[in-house]
Design a protein around this nucleic acid. Structure first.
Lengths: 227, 227
DNA sequence: CGTTCTGTTGAATACCTTCAATTCGCGTGG
DNA sequence: CCACGCGAATTGAAGGTATTCAACAGAACG
């Protein structure tokens, strides 16, 4: 019963009739992962996709020299690994937990049957995939058209709690943030320094106070304030 | 009748019953664009999405300084601009023709009604969006984890005609290829030079002959052969 | 309280970009 | 058919941003 409620709360499944939820429950498998455990690897054949129940998961690519580029960081309620359900057979990237996590695995075949029979489930999926495409669009823009200080400023402004809340909790190691921004820890460290020196932010561990929001916005737009 | 046949040939619509095709025809609008014409701009509210009938279209982002990053280049039969149909209301990037092109515009509302009523149309869409996510995954990997020579080698190997065919027709200006690879014409030019000097390729205008496939594959994998 | 992982700092280097000057290529018009 | 003109492409020199490598400091964890 607990799991059924849980499934009903997943955004992907909102608006589904009880009947379909029961079916989903029928095909769902619960999985538990330790912190730092690999959930799947790039190139691995996909048996299904996951919905995260607790914890956090990073989706990433690796270069030939071992450098990592994080594509997504997902939290509770978010689905991941859906691409190979509908295109190709293999996971296009790696997935690893950042913390001890629980996830629900939905096997591919049974899930596809459900999608075909339920238009609103299909619509939910289309919305999720479309949002993700939009997100990638921004990621590419960021990586290709912006320099690291710009990317960081954009990130900080985007992830600040509320409009009032002038601080950001990174909620991850700085090295992970570097990987998310498409750079390395050394570079991130230097830029955090410069931004602090210029009075834009204050850093205390994983808490970052946004001091000069105006300047951060200018930076995010492309002005080179750190030169 | 001609347009109906045309619609039936679009991969997105394969497997649809005649009845649905008729409906699609009912809501479709034909559009014609000159070479270099903008089809939509980033941030613009979307009234619908397009399927390209002839010609070629580039989807791209612009930096604050006007540098362009091409996300996709689409040819006949391919849909574009679907993201705002299912997520958000605005186009997340620019679309501009590379040649004189014809496209069919499907208005958002009517199309969504069709998708809801036809599971196989929804499945086709899910497959297309998933493929695109996979493609973005590779684009991000390329931009973030590879250097330009690697990206070029990967591109050339990927777009060579057949396995036998040892030449690639760029089918676009070199400057556009540069933008697709996330760099600028000067850099691309220098790298084409080096690759020619090393005997990897031969360049004749927009035709590129792949001479040393083995070496190109090594390059694509990350070996630094041009140093 | 020590071990290990994370983060910081400095110096050297690499890759790519910028800027400026030509050169090339091609369509147009004389 | 040739000459012109304009955008595309190339080349060189200089500069900038980020990475690499190495050493150290600090925090977290058992």
């Amino acid at each position: 019963m607990k799991v059924l409620e849980m499934i009903a709360e997943i955004p992907l499944f909102t608006g589904l009739p009880e009947e379909q939820l029961e079916e989903l429950l029928g095909i769902a498998e619960e999985r538990r992962f330790e912190r730092g455990q690999m959930i799947f690897a790039e190139g691995e054949p996909a048996n299904g996709f996951y919905v995260l129940r607790s914890g956090r998961v990073k989706i990433f690519k690796l270069s030939s020299e071992g450098k990592e580029q994080i594509l997504h960081i997902f939290g509770p309620g978010e689905p991941f690994g859906e691409v190979p359900v509908f295109a190709g057979e293999r996971f296009p990237a790696y997935a690893e937990t950042l913390e001890t996590s629980e996830a629900i695995l939905f096997p591919k075949q049974s899930f596809m049957r459900l999608v075909k029979s339920d238009p609103s489930l299909a619509m939910n999926l289309l919305a999720i995939l479309s949002k993700r495409l939009k997100y990638f669009t921004q990621l590419v823009e960021s990586l290709s058209l912006k320099e690291v200080p710009q990317r960081l400023a954009t990130y900080l402004l985007y992830f600040r709690g509320s409009d009032q809340e002038n601080s950001v909790d990174l909620a991850m190691a700085k090295g992970q943030l570097a990987s998310l921004l498409g750079t390395i820890p050394e570079t991130l460290s230097r830029i955090l320094n410069k931004m602090t020196a210029r009075g834009l932010i204050e850093v205390q561990g994983r808490q970052i106070k946004l001091i000069d929001r105006r300047a951060l916005e200018k930076l995010a737009k492309g002005e080179k304030l750190l030169a």
